[in-house]
């Protein structure tokens, strides 16, 4: 009974991406940390941005931590969503931070691992003070570029997971590699890839793991449009 109550309290964080919410049975279990992984051009950033924007539209404040490029450039580089409104940025419902800005705040550190941990603490502060409900880190692979230590990366991911859970904030962390240690730490793993069929390249999405909900494990084809990320089942007849 207690377990049921706890589950009900936790609720769902509807991504706002219709097809994905349907795959997940209503959305990401709230406060989960989801690893979205896949190669270049598979739509990871677009998916994560829609997650933030849809949330901000319904009053769930969101933060984008960009480690790859200036967040403004990142926004400019994706298909312009019809539903995006600049007011989300102006009134702070959507906040953009470059990882370099966080790194500057950490001060002198003895190791890259320590820098990573301090950067997570900075994110934690922003989330707690701002009452944020959604966070995206794009990408964890370049969060601490010189780390290269799987155990340390997993530890940092764990710290992010704990911090977001405590703040009742749902997170998406983007990675461009399928790493066993990262997958083990994350509550959810979503794989985005290119599926080749008779010379055609289709963008696909597949939820491999999502703690706290039953979900489809099938592969789906996606399209990145101005209406958002659209999803349909991968047809099996031609495989």
């Amino acid at each position: 009974m207690q377990a049921m109550e706890r589950k009900e309290e936790r609720g769902r964080c509807a991504t706002g991406i219709e097809g994905l919410d349907s795959i997940l049975g209503g959305g990401i279990p709230a406060s989960n940390l989801v690893l979205v992984t896949g190669g270049c051009g598979t739509g990871k950033t677009t998916l994560a941005l829609e997650f933030l924007i849809r949330g901000a539209q319904k009053g769930e404040k969101g933060l984008l931590v960009s480690t790859v490029e200036a967040p403004e450039k990142m926004l400019a580089g994706i298909p312009r969503f019809d539903f995006f409104d600049d007011k989300l940025l102006q009134d702070g419902r959507l906040q953009l931070v470059e990882a370099g800005q966080l790194a500057e705040k950490t001060g002198p550190v003895s190791s890259e691992k320590e820098r990573g941990i301090k950067m997570v603490e900075e994110i934690e502060k922003i989330v707690s003070f701002g009452g944020l409900k959604r966070v995206v880190i794009d990408s964890i692979s370049s969060f601490i570029p010189e780390l290269g230590d799987e155990a340390a990366e997993a530890e940092i991911l764990k710290k992010i997971s704990r911090a977001l859970y405590a703040a009742k904030c749902t997170g998406i962390v983007i990675s461009d590699r399928m790493d066993a240690s990262e997958n083990a730490v994350a509550d959810g793993v979503v794989v985005m890839s290119n599926h080749e069929r008779r010379g055609d390249l289709l963008r696909t999405i597949q939820v491999i793991k999502m703690k706290g909900t039953s979900h489809s494990r099938s592969k789906y084809v996606i399209d990145l449009t101005s209406c958002g990320v659209l999803i349909t089942p991968l047809l099996k007849g031609g495989i």
Binding site: R197, R198, D200, L202, V221, I222, D223, T225, C227, L230, I231, T232, P233, L234, L235, G238
Partner: peptide, 20 residues
């Protein structure tokens, strides 16, 4: 759509236009 074998993309484009 690039060619008539990209059937899923056709479904998605119809969905896109219906939303528009």
């Amino acid at each position: 759509v690039e060619n008539p074998t990209m059937l899923e993309n056709i479904i998605l484009k119809v969905d896109f236009l219906a939303r528009k």
